[in-house]
Each structure stands twice: as C-alpha cells, then as structure tokens.
Write a protein that binds this DNA or RNA. Structure first.
Lengths: 346, 346
DNA sequence: TTGAAAGCGCTAACAG
DNA sequence: CTGTTAGCGCTTTCAA
C-alpha cells in the first residue's frame, strides 16, 4: 500500500492539510520551519509519492496530454514525438500516444478516446479532411494543437514548417547549379505536397524558367512512388529529359535514384536529385542525398509549449518554423547542364 | 462541465448508485428493465463519459501502463510499441511511452517516473545492466514485463525472440548455398549480439566447418559499424577472404554492402550478405537484403497480454517467439563458393 | 430492485 | 501558522 498524506500527517504529528501545504508550496512562508522539516522528513522516510488520480480529481487536470499521429516508422514523426515528450516531461505531464497508420476511422476514434480519457489537451497531425467536423466539435471541448500541417478552418493553433520555402530552396539550389530543366516528383492530394509544388513553381518563376507540366510526376512519399515516377521520367525523349529532379520526399528520391541507376544514368552526373525531409538514412543512400531538413524535434517541442500555453491561458499563436537545405552528393552541376546553360546564355 | 453520474441520476430520477450499476454491469439482472432504460437514455442524452480519475481513485487502478524502450527510430521497436498499443486498447488501457535513447540515467528515471505516476504495470526493454538493482527493487512494487531481451536474474516474465536460432538459420542458409568461409560482423557487448554469435557458431559446428576467429569482426548495429567491419574484412589476404558474411543487423549489412561495392566487389556474386532484423527499408537497398525477420508486432501484442495477466493474477510465463528467414537477393551461391565447395568435396 | 452512506487521496476555502 | 470541513466523481457495502 502506498503512503498517503494521512500517513505522513500521523508520522509527523500534524494535519493532512499541513502536509499538503508543505509538499505543494516548497517556498511558502505559511509554515513554521520546524513543522516543515518534520513533514519533509516523514515524507522522505515513508517514501511518499503523490497519487495523481486523487490530485487530478480535485484539480480537474490529469496532467495527461494526447498525441495522435499517423505512424512512428519514419524519423520524421518519431522525432517530433520525442520533442513533445521532452517538453512534456519538463512540464510534468505524461504523453498518451496513438498512431492511426493512415486509417481515417482510427484517427477519429483516437481523438475521441483521448477526449474521453480526460486528457488536458491534444496534439495531433491532421491527416483526413473527413475528420474535420469532428475536430471542429472537439476544439470546443478541449485544447487542440495541430502539427506539421493544419486545417485552416479550425481555430486551434498549429505548428508547421516552411514547406513552400523548403521546396523553393531545393529548386533554387538546382537552378544555381546550372540546371534549367528540372522535374518534380510530387504529390498532389496532400497539403505538404501542394506547398512543395508551389515552392517549386515559385523558384522557376523567379528565375524565369518556363514551367513545363510534363516535367511534373505524381510520386507520393514512398520508395515505390519515386521509382515509378522515374520510370515515367525515362520515357521522355532523351533530348527533352530534365537534368535534375526535385522529389517531394527522401524515400521517393531514393527510389528514383535506384531506377535511374538501373537505367544506366549516373546521379548526380546525368541527373541531379534533391529530396525532402532529411531522414536518418539519407546520408547512407548509395548516393548521399541532398535534401531539405525539417525542424522535426523542434516542432514537437514548440507544439508542447503551445499546448501548455493554450491550456493555461486559453490562447496560443500558430507558428511556422524554418527549414534548411542540406547539400550532399546527389546534386551537382551536371556537365550537360553546364553546356545547356552556356548555350542558353549566348 | 462534463456530465457526471449525478446529472444522469437527476435526469433519470434514480440514485447515483443505480446509475453506476446500470452503466457498469450491462448484463446484470439487478435492475428493473424500465429503470435501466431510463438511465441508459439519460446517459446517452447527456453524452456521459466516465471520469477515469474518479474511477481509478476508487478501484486503485489507473488503466495506464508504461513502456520504456531505447528509441522509436527503427521499425523494430516502433512496431513492437504498435503491438502493445493495439492490445492495450482492446483491454481498455492507455500507454505511457518513454524513450531513453541509450541514456542509462534516463532509463532509470523513466522507470521510476512511471512507478510514481501509478501505472498498473510496465513493459520495458532492459538495456543497461547498471539498472538491474533498480529493476529488482521495482518488480517487487509493480508488475514488470521484459521485452526483446531479459535480465534473467529478475523474476519478471520476458517476451523475446529466437535470436540464436535466427543466427543459426542465417548461417545455415549461407552454408547450404555452398559457402564455407563465412564471416560474422557482430557485436559482443550485448545480449542479442552474443546470441547471434552463438547461433553462427552452432551452425558452423553442426555443418563441421572449422571456426576461424579472424573472420569475426566487431560491427555494432549501425551502418558505420558495418562499413568499418567491411574495410577490415577487405584487408584479409584475397585467397583467405570469406565468400559470405552474416551481419548482426540490417543497417550494418547495408554499410558492409556499400563498402564492398565501393571496393569493386559484387554482392552477392563476390560476397553474399545476410542481415538481421528485417527493417522496412531492407527491400529497397541497392541489393535487397536477405535477412531474419523478428516477430516485431507480435512481441508487443504478447507482452501486453502477459502484462495484463500479471496484473490480474500476479503470474505470467515467459515466452520466446519464433523468427523467420527471408531470402532476397543479397545471398546466392557465389561461383567461387561453388568452386571451393567442389574442391573441398574431392 | 433500489437507495443511503462511506470513503478512495487529495486540495482549498474558511476558521481559529 | 495550522486545523477543520467539505467535496471532486465514482464504487461499494449494507440496509431497506
């Protein structure tokens, strides 16, 4: 049986309430030093641990927060969750984690389960538009923070990253390397994908490179999508073939590179490739990948901070965190690009 | 303000206690049908959600369980956690997850935090021998289940996998392919590593292949370790060079393969490689990797089941789950192995 | 079949 | 500075 305040009270010869006071307001001057000492000693001796249930019952706070994300199998989300946990720990709350693995019904279920469990707030990555109505309902009842992407019609704050800018940086990098025909292996039915496509477009526009929709392929985020897009890419007439590709994700870039190599193309010599996400494994790929690093851990840390703010004050602002271009070996000025470039400049 | 039993009682015109009875014993005959109906309707109308804190306070159970593992960045552990969560959900409990990222002090801290939070039980992967005393202390106070590996001096049940057998299967596979000189890129200061080494030895012994310690390299589990071991491997005189390698982990195998390729060796033609773990990415490696698949999700599911058993009855048995050889392209009978083999058999 | 009452461990007025 | 009292929402004897 765990020690309770009562036990300590008896041991120290004071009332339960005094014990509570001593233990909860360490700095308070409301207690005589001698009494405080006695209580502390007793608590120590009996190895007291507060009962969170009882405390929560009174305070109407559980110090539990919920997290709902799609999965943890990519470093992307697992690091974000890590960030959330780090800060949660500093704030003295525990994290209830749910992964729906791209099942819309599960996403909805978990959000509700979390609400029902009485968590103080929820951090989630909104994935399915179909759950928007539920979210609208939920945010009235419980503090919500969106991460990585956001339903803008919710009033809940969000913590995202500069995906559009990341795509711009990636594309600009290729342009500065002398590339002029730059393909995009993207994804169109997804917020991040759209933003990345926009960044790609903006870079082309700003550098006055005409946009050619035939150079945009639907790839998705996974390895197979990248591989398949590369196959399509290779069907382009050789003289129209881009010298560079900006991929919407590192795994897709990986698949693409392998397809290119299988087809006898060298990366980056024949075709430069830039990815997005900076997964743990990217430095180990057969051609270490140039990519855009997202603030993975930071997103989690900030989100947890915002959630706390929201719980305490009822308010919190949205933020969009910065991204970073990481140059490795998959992108270099191709000889061909150099030639074309010079030719164009004549 | 959330609805309470009191609200329902008022709404239905019955006592709080009757409401509790109806809601908790759906099948009980202790309540008149008419009353039951009224209560159910009221609960429905008021959208009642039980307050877990209050219930926990009375029942002395939190329906919270704790999980402590090293990290989630490999599919290995993240899938296990998934398995735990799936079953936890079926059992109506929530999972408090902590990852210590190979920091011994954190592992200790989290175990204690979990105990202090009052979770009903803990599932953990023991990593640091230095925390054994703490674990011995802890298992007296709270149900503990060990996963993936086990401190045998604890009385807590464990759920592990046949690592030794996996290594045996991997090595046997190479032997049956005709390989006779088989290197092992292993890890010696770790339970799994030791078991895998033993399996390797047993296979050699059973097939009467002399053990040559010069063919065993210290690699660790990560990419760099595999790469470094491969460099050492390549320093062996060419005529003594093994035709196959059994690696202690997929990432190490990946590093090794890349080193071999950089050195101009072909995999599997010049050297066959088998890994261990069956990570998500292994099929996508430049040479899809033959490997040993562990029961990742299953381990989690079983562990959660055992924990529940242990919580309910105070007892639960340990289990060791089976593993599976997955043959891909990194292992084939090399021509050289064939030649040597035939020569030996003369 | 139902209700009254006590109590889980803790906090927070309000007295003293 | 300290104790008394009440109550958080729920379960559970024990009576009725």
């Amino acid at each position: 049986m765990a020690t309770t305040l009562k036990d300590i009270a008896k041991e120290a010869g004071v009332s339960v309430c005094t014990v509570s006071r001593v233990l909860n307001n360490p700095k308070s001057i409301q207690v005589r030093d001698e009494t405080r000492r006695r209580v502390l000693v007793a608590a120590q001796r009996l190895n007291y641990r507060p009962n969170i249930m009882a405390r929560g019952l009174v305070k109407k706070r559980t110090n539990l927060i919920g997290v709902v994300v799609s999965s943890l199998t990519n470093s992307f989300l697992s690091e974000t969750v890590q960030g959330i946990q780090d800060v949660a720990e500093e704030l003295g709350c525990s994290v209830l984690l749910y992964t729906h693995r791209h099942n819309p019904a599960k996403e909805a279920e978990y959000l509700q389960v979390l609400r029902d469990k009485g968590v103080d707030g929820i951090i989630w990555m909104p994935v399915f538009e179909s759950n928007l109505p539920l979210a609208l309902e939920l945010e009235k009842e419980i503090p919500l923070i969106q991460i990585h992407t956001a339903f803008k019609s919710l009033t809940s704050p969000y913590v995202t990253a500069e995906h559009e800018k990341g795509a711009y940086l990636a594309t600009e990098h290729l342009i500065k390397l002398g590339h002029r025909r730059i393909a995009h292996f993207g994804i169109s039915n997804d917020t991040h994908g759209k933003l990345r496509h926009l960044g790609y477009l903006r870079a082309l526009t700003e550098y006055q490179i005409p946009y050619d929709p035939r150079l945009v392929f639907e790839a998705g985020y996974d390895w197979h999508g990248g591989y398949a897009s590369a196959r399509e890419f290779l069907k382009l007439p050789v003289d129209q073939r881009p010298t560079a590709v900006f991929c919407c994700g590192d795994l897709a870039a990986w698949g693409a590179i392998q397809c290119f190599k299988k087809a006898g193309l060298e990366v980056p010599e024949d075709v430069a490739v830039v990815g997005f996400d900076d997964l743990t494994i990217t430095p180990w790929m057969e051609v270490p990948l140039t990519t855009i690093a997202l603030p993975k851990v930071e997103t989690g840390r900030v989100a947890m901070g915002k959630l706390d703010e929201k719980i305490q004050t009822g308010e919190a602002e949205s933020v969009c965190l910065d991204v970073r271009l990481i140059i490795r070996e998959s992108s270099r000025a191709s000889r061909l690009a150099g030639v074309l470039n010079r030719a164009q400049n004549c």
